[in-house]
C-alpha cells in the first residue's frame, strides 16, 4: 500500500553522482537470510550490481559477473548483487538456477535513493578497496570497459 507522499520535485536536475565519494553503507539480508553489509568487504574491490529477474539486460550481464568473481576473486574482488524484485522468491529461484557464485541482497527504495537514484536497471557501481565509488554504469553497459576499470582498481595499490 502506498503510504503517502513525501515530496514533489521538479526542475531539470542531474542525478547526484557518487563517483569519488564514499559508498553508502548498508546491511541487508541476503537470499539465504544472512546479514550482508558492505563494510565486510572493505579492503576488496566491490562490484555492486542492482538487477531484477524481469530485466533482460541484467540477465545478460550476470554470467560475466560470475566469471569475474571466479577469475578475480583471489585478487580481492567481490561481486555483490542487489535485487530490486518486489519479493524474494523470484530472485532466489533465479540465483539457484544460475548457480550464482556471489551474494545477493534484497534492495529497498531508500538504498536506491542513497546510491544517487536507481530508477531503472541494471545499474552497477565499482567501489575501490577503501570504500570509494570509482564508477557507475547505467543500462546495457560496455562490459569490456567495466572489466578494464575493475582490473585497474585491482592493480592500483592506491585504491
Amino acid at each position: 500500500m502506498m503510504l503517502g507522499m513525501l515530496t514533489a520535485t521538479s526542475g531539470a536536475q542531474e542525478p547526484v553522482s557518487l563517483v569519488h565519494r564514499p559508498a553508502p553503507q548498508f546491511s541487508l539480508p541476503d537470499l539465504h537470510h544472512a546479514r550482508i553489509s558492505l563494510e565486510q568487504y572493505r579492503g576488496k574491490v566491490v562490484l555492486l550490481n542492482f538487477w531484477a529477474t524481469w530485466c533482460a539486460p541484467c540477465k545478460l550481464e550476470m554470467p560475466r559477473f560470475m566469471a569475474w568473481q571466479k577469475q578475480y576473486g583471489p585478487q580481492g574482488f567481490q561481486v555483490l548483487g542487489v535485487s530490486i524484485d518486489d519479493s524474494e522468491p523470484p530472485a532466489a529461484a533465479y540465483a539457484d538456477q544460475l548457480h550464482l557464485n556471489y551474494p545477493v541482497v534484497m534492495g529497498d527504495p531508500h538504498l536506491g535513493e542513497r546510491y544517487g537514484g536507481v530508477l531503472g536497471v541494471p545499474v552497477t557501481f565499482l567501489i575501490d578497496r577503501k570504500g570509494i565509488v570509482q564508477a557507475r554504469f547505467d543500462g546495457e553497459s560496455d562490459l569490456g570497459a567495466m572489466e578494464i576499470k575493475l582490473r585497474t582498481l585491482l592493480a592500483d595499490p592506491a585504491h
Partner: peptide, 19 residues
C-alpha cells in the same frame, strides 16, 4: 526510451516518492 530516471526524473518533470 531508456528508463524512468533518465527520461523523466533527470529531465526535471515532477515526481513523488512513497513514504
Amino acid at each position: 526510451a531508456q528508463n524512468f530516471g533518465a527520461d523523466w526524473v533527470n529531465k526535471g518533470y515532477r515526481v513523488e516518492k512513497s513514504q
